[in-house]
Protein backbone atom coordinates (compact mmCIF):
# COMPACT_ATOMS: atom_id res chain seq x y z
CA UNK A 1 0.00 0.00 0.00
CA UNK A 2 2.84 2.33 0.82
CA UNK A 3 4.16 1.99 -2.70
CA UNK A 4 0.74 2.63 -4.21
CA UNK A 5 0.32 5.70 -2.05
CA UNK A 6 3.59 7.24 -3.16
CA UNK A 7 3.14 6.31 -6.81
CA UNK A 8 -0.34 7.80 -6.93
CA UNK A 9 0.68 10.96 -5.10
CA UNK A 10 3.55 11.44 -7.52
CA UNK A 11 1.19 11.04 -10.46
CA UNK A 12 -1.21 13.62 -9.00
CA UNK A 13 1.64 16.01 -8.19
CA UNK A 14 2.67 16.01 -11.84
CA UNK A 15 -0.70 17.52 -12.69
CA UNK A 16 -1.24 19.69 -9.63
CA UNK A 17 1.52 22.18 -8.74
CA UNK A 18 -0.16 22.91 -5.40
CA UNK A 19 0.94 19.56 -3.92
CA UNK A 20 3.85 19.72 -1.45
CA UNK A 21 5.40 17.02 0.70
CA UNK A 22 6.59 18.17 4.12
CA UNK A 23 8.47 15.37 5.84
CA UNK A 24 10.18 14.73 9.15
CA UNK A 25 13.10 12.63 7.96
CA UNK A 26 11.09 9.46 7.29
CA UNK A 27 10.32 7.77 3.99
CA UNK A 28 13.59 6.18 2.86
CA UNK A 29 13.20 4.11 -0.29
CA UNK A 30 9.74 5.53 -1.04
CA UNK A 31 9.76 9.30 -1.25
CA UNK A 32 12.83 9.76 -3.46
CA UNK A 33 10.90 9.89 -6.76
CA UNK A 34 8.81 12.81 -5.42
CA UNK A 35 11.93 14.52 -4.08
CA UNK A 36 13.72 14.15 -7.39
CA UNK A 37 10.75 15.21 -9.50
CA UNK A 38 9.79 18.22 -7.37
CA UNK A 39 12.77 19.47 -5.39
CA UNK A 40 11.00 22.78 -4.77
CA UNK A 41 7.89 21.08 -3.44
CA UNK A 42 9.65 18.62 -1.17
CA UNK A 43 10.88 19.69 2.28
CA UNK A 44 12.43 17.54 4.94
CA UNK A 45 12.24 19.60 8.12
CA UNK A 46 14.33 17.11 10.07
CA UNK A 47 13.11 15.06 12.99
CA UNK A 48 10.66 17.72 14.13
CA UNK A 49 7.06 16.69 13.71
CA UNK A 50 5.52 19.70 15.40
CA UNK A 51 7.37 21.98 13.04
CA UNK A 52 6.50 19.69 10.11
CA UNK A 53 2.81 20.13 10.85
CA UNK A 54 3.05 23.86 11.54
CA UNK A 55 5.04 24.47 8.36
CA UNK A 56 2.58 22.33 6.39
CA UNK A 57 -0.26 24.40 7.80
CA UNK A 58 1.46 27.63 6.76
CA UNK A 59 2.16 26.28 3.27
CA UNK A 60 -1.45 25.11 2.94
CA UNK A 61 -2.86 28.43 4.11
CA UNK A 62 -1.16 30.05 1.15
CA UNK A 63 -3.36 28.09 -1.26
CA UNK A 64 -1.43 24.83 -1.47
CA UNK A 65 -2.01 21.20 -0.54
CA UNK A 66 0.55 20.09 2.03
CA UNK A 67 1.10 16.40 2.72
CA UNK A 68 2.81 15.43 5.95
CA UNK A 69 4.08 11.89 5.98
CA UNK A 70 5.78 9.66 8.49
CA UNK A 71 5.34 6.34 10.20
CA UNK A 72 3.00 5.20 12.96
CA UNK A 73 2.32 7.90 15.58
CA UNK A 74 4.99 10.37 14.57
CA UNK A 75 2.86 12.65 12.37
CA UNK A 76 -0.22 12.37 14.59
CA UNK A 77 0.36 12.06 18.32
CA UNK A 78 3.71 13.85 18.43
CA UNK A 79 2.10 16.92 16.91
CA UNK A 80 -1.52 16.44 17.89
CA UNK A 81 -1.96 20.00 19.10
CA UNK A 82 -0.63 21.37 15.81
CA UNK A 83 -3.18 19.19 14.02
CA UNK A 84 -5.96 20.38 16.30
CA UNK A 85 -5.19 24.10 16.67
CA UNK A 86 -3.38 24.88 13.44
CA UNK A 87 -4.73 22.46 10.84
CA UNK A 88 -8.26 21.59 11.93
CA UNK A 89 -9.22 24.90 13.49
CA UNK A 90 -8.12 26.79 10.38
CA UNK A 91 -9.55 24.09 8.10
CA UNK A 92 -6.17 24.07 6.38
CA UNK A 93 -5.62 21.84 3.38
CA UNK A 94 -3.15 19.55 5.12
CA UNK A 95 -3.09 15.82 4.49
CA UNK A 96 -1.67 13.79 7.35
CA UNK A 97 -0.42 10.44 6.14
CA UNK A 98 0.87 7.61 8.26
CA UNK A 99 2.54 4.49 7.03
CA UNK A 100 2.04 1.41 9.17
CA UNK A 101 -1.41 1.67 10.73
CA UNK A 102 -2.17 -0.72 13.59
CA UNK A 103 0.64 -3.13 14.40
CA UNK A 104 2.15 -3.18 10.89
CA UNK A 105 5.56 -2.62 12.46
CA UNK A 106 4.90 -5.50 14.88
CA UNK A 107 8.29 -6.38 16.38
CA UNK A 108 9.49 -2.76 16.43
CA UNK A 109 7.39 -2.34 19.54
CA UNK A 110 4.90 -0.02 21.19
CA UNK A 111 6.52 3.22 20.00
CA UNK A 112 5.85 2.12 16.41
CA UNK A 113 2.29 0.82 16.85
CA UNK A 114 -0.45 3.18 15.74
CA UNK A 115 -3.32 1.77 17.75
CA UNK A 116 -5.17 4.78 19.16
CA UNK A 117 -5.01 7.08 16.15
CA UNK A 118 -8.54 6.57 14.85
CA UNK A 119 -10.08 7.38 18.22
CA UNK A 120 -7.95 10.47 18.66
CA UNK A 121 -8.13 11.87 15.15
CA UNK A 122 -11.84 11.33 14.71
CA UNK A 123 -12.47 13.42 17.81
CA UNK A 124 -11.18 16.49 15.95
CA UNK A 125 -13.58 18.73 14.03
CA UNK A 126 -13.13 19.33 10.28
CA UNK A 127 -10.93 16.32 9.55
CA UNK A 128 -11.66 13.33 7.33
CA UNK A 129 -10.45 10.01 8.76
CA UNK A 130 -9.77 7.48 6.04
CA UNK A 131 -8.41 3.94 6.35
CA UNK A 132 -8.07 2.16 3.01
CA UNK A 133 -7.99 -1.63 3.16
CA UNK A 134 -6.06 -2.72 0.08
CA UNK A 135 -4.13 -1.32 -2.86
CA UNK A 136 -7.31 -0.70 -4.77
CA UNK A 137 -8.77 1.48 -2.01
CA UNK A 138 -5.35 2.96 -1.26
CA UNK A 139 -5.05 4.40 -4.75
CA UNK A 140 -8.63 5.68 -4.83
CA UNK A 141 -8.20 7.20 -1.38
CA UNK A 142 -5.16 9.25 -2.47
CA UNK A 143 -7.19 10.72 -5.32
CA UNK A 144 -10.10 11.44 -2.99
CA UNK A 145 -7.74 12.96 -0.42
CA UNK A 146 -6.27 15.42 -2.90
CA UNK A 147 -9.68 16.25 -4.37
CA UNK A 148 -11.06 16.98 -0.90
CA UNK A 149 -10.51 20.54 0.32
CA UNK A 150 -9.58 20.41 4.00
CA UNK A 151 -7.78 18.42 6.68
CA UNK A 152 -7.45 14.73 5.97
CA UNK A 153 -6.03 11.81 7.89
CA UNK A 154 -4.88 8.92 5.72
CA UNK A 155 -3.99 5.75 7.62
CA UNK A 156 -1.95 3.69 5.21
CA UNK A 157 -0.91 0.09 5.65
CA UNK A 158 2.65 -0.99 5.08
CA UNK A 159 3.51 -3.41 2.30
CA UNK A 160 2.36 -6.70 0.77
CA UNK A 161 -1.27 -6.26 1.74
CA UNK A 162 -3.54 -8.71 -0.05
CA UNK A 163 -6.39 -7.51 -2.24
CA UNK A 164 -9.83 -7.58 -0.67
CA UNK A 165 -11.85 -6.11 -3.51
CA UNK A 166 -12.20 -7.96 -6.79
CA UNK A 167 -11.79 -5.56 -9.65
CA UNK A 168 -12.75 -1.91 -9.77
CA UNK A 169 -14.51 -0.07 -6.97
CA UNK A 170 -16.71 2.99 -6.77
CA UNK A 171 -14.77 4.76 -4.02
CA UNK A 172 -16.46 7.76 -2.48
CA UNK A 173 -15.53 9.40 0.82
CA UNK A 174 -18.11 8.66 3.47
CA UNK A 175 -19.63 5.80 1.50
CA UNK A 176 -18.81 2.28 2.68
CA UNK A 177 -18.08 -0.44 0.12
CA UNK A 178 -19.78 -3.81 0.25
CA UNK A 179 -17.24 -6.50 -0.57
CA UNK A 180 -19.72 -9.38 -0.50
CA UNK A 181 -23.40 -9.73 0.29
CA UNK A 182 -24.79 -11.88 3.09
CA UNK A 183 -27.81 -12.29 5.34
CA UNK A 184 -26.81 -13.69 8.75
CA UNK A 185 -24.07 -11.37 10.04
CA UNK A 186 -22.64 -8.09 8.74
CA UNK A 187 -18.92 -7.69 9.27
CA UNK A 188 -17.88 -4.05 9.15
CA UNK A 189 -14.12 -3.70 8.94
CA UNK A 190 -11.64 -0.93 8.34
CA UNK A 191 -8.15 -1.27 6.88
CA UNK A 192 -6.07 -4.25 5.80
CA UNK A 193 -7.33 -6.41 8.68
CA UNK A 194 -10.35 -6.81 6.39
CA UNK A 195 -8.48 -9.51 4.55
CA UNK A 196 -8.66 -11.73 7.63
CA UNK A 197 -12.35 -10.90 7.92
CA UNK A 198 -12.85 -11.90 4.31
CA UNK A 199 -11.14 -15.27 4.84
CA UNK A 200 -13.14 -15.81 8.02
CA UNK A 201 -16.39 -15.04 6.19
CA UNK A 202 -15.52 -17.58 3.52
CA UNK A 203 -14.59 -20.13 6.15
CA UNK A 204 -17.83 -19.87 8.17
CA UNK A 205 -19.87 -20.01 4.96
CA UNK A 206 -18.05 -23.18 4.01
CA UNK A 207 -18.04 -24.84 7.41
CA UNK A 208 -21.29 -23.60 8.96
CA UNK A 209 -23.38 -22.18 6.15
CA UNK A 210 -23.25 -18.72 7.75
CA UNK A 211 -23.93 -15.98 5.22
CA UNK A 212 -21.78 -12.89 5.89
CA UNK A 213 -22.14 -9.42 4.44
CA UNK A 214 -18.69 -7.87 4.33
CA UNK A 215 -18.42 -4.10 4.39
CA UNK A 216 -15.30 -1.95 4.14
CA UNK A 217 -15.83 1.20 6.19
CA UNK A 218 -12.85 3.05 4.70
CA UNK A 219 -14.07 6.46 5.84
CA UNK A 220 -14.65 6.59 9.57
CA UNK A 221 -15.29 10.31 9.53
CA UNK A 222 -17.68 11.27 8.02
CA UNK A 223 -19.25 7.91 8.69
CA UNK A 224 -21.69 6.10 6.42
CA UNK A 225 -24.76 6.02 8.65
CA UNK A 226 -26.89 4.32 6.01
CA UNK A 227 -24.59 1.34 5.64
CA UNK A 228 -24.66 0.83 9.40
CA UNK A 229 -28.40 1.25 9.93
CA UNK A 230 -29.13 -0.92 6.92
CA UNK A 231 -27.06 -3.73 8.39
CA UNK A 232 -28.82 -3.32 11.74
CA UNK A 233 -32.31 -3.30 10.28
CA UNK A 234 -31.92 -5.91 7.55
CA UNK A 235 -29.43 -8.29 9.12
CA UNK A 236 -29.69 -7.48 12.81
CA UNK A 237 -26.24 -8.69 13.72
CA UNK A 238 -22.98 -6.71 13.33
CA UNK A 239 -19.37 -7.63 13.98
CA UNK A 240 -16.84 -4.80 13.71
CA UNK A 241 -13.20 -5.67 13.03
CA UNK A 242 -10.31 -3.24 13.29
CA UNK A 243 -6.61 -3.20 14.07
CA UNK A 244 -6.89 -0.54 16.76
CA UNK A 245 -7.49 -0.26 20.45
CA UNK A 246 -11.01 -1.26 21.47
CA UNK A 247 -11.57 2.22 22.88
CA UNK A 248 -12.95 4.85 20.58
CA UNK A 249 -12.07 3.35 17.23
CA UNK A 250 -14.20 2.31 14.27
CA UNK A 251 -16.28 -0.13 16.31
CA UNK A 252 -17.09 2.62 18.77
CA UNK A 253 -18.03 4.92 15.91
CA UNK A 254 -20.41 2.25 14.56
CA UNK A 255 -21.92 1.73 18.01
CA UNK A 256 -22.47 5.48 18.32
CA UNK A 257 -24.46 5.50 15.09
CA UNK A 258 -26.55 2.54 16.23
CA UNK A 259 -27.29 4.26 19.54
CA UNK A 260 -28.11 7.60 17.94
CA UNK A 261 -30.37 5.99 15.34
CA UNK A 262 -32.17 3.83 17.91
CA UNK A 263 -31.20 0.58 16.21
CA UNK A 264 -31.65 -2.57 18.28
CA UNK A 265 -29.35 -5.31 17.07
CA UNK A 266 -26.61 -7.64 18.18
CA UNK A 267 -23.21 -5.93 18.07
CA UNK A 268 -19.76 -7.20 18.88
CA UNK A 269 -16.56 -5.21 18.51
CA UNK A 270 -13.38 -7.06 17.68
CA UNK A 271 -10.25 -4.98 18.19
CA UNK A 272 -6.99 -4.98 20.06
CA UNK A 273 -7.62 -5.01 23.80
CA UNK A 274 -7.01 -1.85 25.82
CA UNK A 275 -3.36 -2.68 26.48
CA UNK A 276 0.05 -1.61 25.26
CA UNK A 277 0.96 -4.26 22.72
CA UNK A 278 4.28 -5.16 24.26
CA UNK A 279 4.43 -8.76 23.05
CA UNK A 280 7.13 -9.30 20.45
CA UNK A 281 6.02 -10.61 17.11
CA UNK A 282 5.08 -9.95 13.53
CA UNK A 283 1.88 -8.19 12.56
CA UNK A 284 0.16 -11.47 11.69
CA UNK A 285 1.34 -13.14 14.89
CA UNK A 286 0.10 -10.24 17.01
CA UNK A 287 -3.25 -10.27 15.19
CA UNK A 288 -3.62 -13.98 15.95
CA UNK A 289 -2.58 -13.48 19.55
CA UNK A 290 -5.29 -10.85 20.11
CA UNK A 291 -8.12 -12.65 18.33
CA UNK A 292 -7.85 -10.79 15.04
CA UNK A 293 -6.54 -13.77 13.06
CA UNK A 294 -8.82 -15.63 10.66
CA UNK A 295 -9.64 -18.22 13.33
CA UNK A 296 -10.47 -15.59 15.94
CA UNK A 297 -12.80 -13.70 13.64
CA UNK A 298 -14.44 -16.94 12.42
CA UNK A 299 -15.06 -18.03 16.03
CA UNK A 300 -16.80 -14.72 16.77
CA UNK A 301 -18.93 -15.08 13.66
CA UNK A 302 -20.07 -18.53 14.73
CA UNK A 303 -20.85 -17.31 18.25
CA UNK A 304 -22.75 -14.28 17.00
CA UNK A 305 -24.79 -16.20 14.47
CA UNK A 306 -25.78 -18.79 17.06
CA UNK A 307 -24.92 -21.71 14.76
Amino acid sequence: MRGVFNKTLLELARKDPRIYMILADIGYGEIEPFRDAFPDRYYNVGVAEQNMTGVACGVAMEGNIAVTYSIANFPTLRCLEQIRNDVCYHNANVKIVIIGGGVSYGPLGVSHHSTEDIAILRALPNIVVCVPCDTCEAEAAVRAMIAHDGPFYYRCGYKNEKDIHDGSIDFRLGKALTVREGTDVCVIFTGPIGYNAKLAAEQVQREHGISVRLVSLHTIKPIDRNAITDAARNIGCILTVEEHNLSGGMGSAVAEVLADEGCICKVKRLALPDVNVSLVGSQEWLRDRYGLGVRGIADELVKLSGR
Binding site: I22, Y43, Q50, N51, T53, G54, V55, A56, C57, G58, V59, A60, M61, E62, G63, N64, A66, Q82, D86
Partner: peptide, 9 residues
Protein backbone atom coordinates in the same frame (compact mmCIF):
# COMPACT_ATOMS: atom_id res chain seq x y z
CA UNK B 1 6.32 27.10 12.50
CA UNK B 2 3.22 28.32 10.68
CA UNK B 3 4.89 31.64 9.87
CA UNK B 4 7.84 29.70 8.48
CA UNK B 5 5.48 27.65 6.31
CA UNK B 6 3.85 30.81 4.99
CA UNK B 7 7.25 32.34 4.32
CA UNK B 8 8.36 29.18 2.54
CA UNK B 9 5.30 29.25 0.28
Amino acid sequence: PVAAGMALA
